[in-house]
Amino acid sequence: MQHSLSISFHAPRTLLLLVLLPWVRGAVGQEGFCSVPPSVVAESTTKPLYWKVTNPTLSPANLQDLPGFTRSVYRWDHALITPESHVFSPLPDWVNTLGAYLITPAMGAHFSMYLAKMQENSRSGLPPKDVERYISLENHYPEQIIGSTETQPLLETPGEVFELRKLLPTSAPYDFNIHIMDFQPGEYLNVKEVHYNQHGLLLLEGQGIYRLGDSWYPVQAGDVIWMAPFVPQWYAALGKTPSRYLLYKDVNRNPL
C-alpha cells in the first residue's frame, strides 16, 4: 500500500500542509506544491517524490549493529532530529494517519512542525483551536495558497549561489514563509547567518554539513533541524547529487 508524507506547520492563521507524494497531487492541481521537473518525475515512477525523506541512506535498518546509536541532538538553541529517532503515533482528529512531532514549543520553538504518514483513504483534521501564533495586522488577511514549487520564480540572492524559491506571498498578511533552497554539489552559504528569525528545516534531497552554534553536523535527506534565534548557522552541500531543503521562516513582523 502506498503511503504519503506531509509536513505541517502551525504558526499563522492558515495551516500549511505540504504533501509529498505524486498520487496526491491530482487532488490539488496538475502539480503538487513541492513538485519536481518532469524529467525527475519520469525517473520516480516506482518511488514517491522525496522518497529519501523516509528512506535515508542511513536508515534504522543500517543501525541494527549499533544499539542505542542516533545522530539526533538537542541543545538549548538548536536540534537535529534524524529519521531513526522519529516516533509515530495516531494524530488527533486525523483519519488513518500516523504523525511524528519533530519541532514544538516544548523545545523552545514558537511553532510546531510534524510529519504525517497518509494513505489513499486518510483524511486530515482541522488545526486545533487557540494554538495558532499569528500576529495580525489591521486590514491584512492571509488566504489559502495552493501551487507548485517549480512554477515559483527564482529570486535573487545577492552574494550567494544557491537557488531560492518562496512558496507563500511575501506581502504583509503573511507572518511566515516557506522557502525551497537548492544547492549544487560543493555550493555553500556565503553568509554565516546570525539573526532573530527561527527556522524549521527539512532536508528533502542530498547531503551536506550544517553548522549550528559551535557544532558541525553531517546531514542528509530526511533530517530535520530547529534553529533558535541568533544561533550561528551555515550549510554546505556535499556528495555527488544536488541538495534541496524546505525552510520555515517567520517574517514581516517587528521582533519588538
Rank of each mutant, 00 (worst) to 15 (best):
H86Q: 10
E84R: 07
H86R: 13
A109C: 05
V87L: 10
L102K: 04
I81Y: 08
H86E: 02
A106G: 02
M107K: 07
I103W: 04
L102N: 02
A100N: 03
T97E: 01
Y101R: 12
L98V: 00
G99I: 07
E84H: 11
W94P: 02
H86L: 15
H110R: 15
F88Y: 15
P92Q: 10
T82C: 15
P105V: 11
T82A: 14
V87Y: 04
Y101N: 02
H86Y: 15
A106F: 07
N96H: 14
S112H: 10
P92R: 15
L91R: 12
S85W: 10
H110Y: 08
F88G: 01
L98E: 06
F111W: 02
V87I: 13
T82W: 03
G99E: 02
V95W: 01
P105Y: 09
P92N: 09
L98Q: 13
G108D: 04
L91C: 05
L80G: 03
G108H: 09
I103H: 02
H110K: 14
A106I: 04
P90T: 04
Y101G: 01
P83N: 11
S85I: 07
E84P: 00
M107R: 11
S112R: 12
L98D: 09
E84K: 07
A109L: 11
L91A: 11
P105H: 11
H86P: 00
H110V: 02
T82E: 00
L98K: 07
D93C: 11
A106S: 14
V87F: 04
A106H: 11
S112V: 05
T104V: 04
G108E: 02
Y101D: 00
T97H: 08
Y101S: 05
P90A: 12
L102M: 06
S112G: 04
W94Q: 03
L98S: 10
P83D: 06
A106C: 04
P92G: 05
L91N: 01
A100F: 07
L80T: 05
F88C: 05
G99T: 11
P90N: 07
